[in-house]
């Protein structure tokens, strides 16, 4: 794929991924067929900042986990008052990474 398009994609979407994934994503996209550009460029990613805000406000109900698609973990947090409050606090620091991992999984369906 055109390097210019790929760099544009990286510029706009780098914040949605772990930094160590970005270089690999760029290589993959350049090697990818041009016909997939439309589907790749229109994927909706979850914003890590949003999930952090939700985690701080409603983390003990597990809503942050539900939002990023981790339904099972969300139920776990909901049923235990956010893991007795400990898990809720741990997730304030984990949720941004978890969101980026989820975004990577979403993109991977198109990359491979």
């Amino acid at each position: 794929m055109d390097a210019q398009k790929v760099d544009m994609f990286i510029l706009t979407n780098a914040k949605f991924f772990e930094s160590h994934h970005v270089a690999a994503i760029r290589d993959r996209l350049i090697a990818m067929d041009d016909s997939k550009w439309v589907s790749v460029s229109t994927i909706q990613f979850k914003d890590p900042t949003t999930s952090l805000i939700v985690s701080i406000l409603a983390g003990s109900l597990g809503i942050d986990r539900f939002i990023i698609g981790d339904t099972g973990m969300g139920v776990g947090k909901l049923l235990t008052c956010g893991g007795l409050g400990i898990w809720a606090i741990v997730d304030w620091f984990m949720i941004q990474g978890a969101t980026r991992e989820k975004n990577m999984q979403k993109l991977q369906q198109f990359l491979y």
Binding site: G59, S60, L61, C81, G82, L84, G85, I89
Partner: peptide, 12 residues
């Protein structure tokens, strides 16, 4: 130990 109840006094 519930954070929500601790800070807002509303049970979760």
């Amino acid at each position: 130990i519930c954070l929500l109840k601790h800070f807002t006094n509303i049970p979760c």
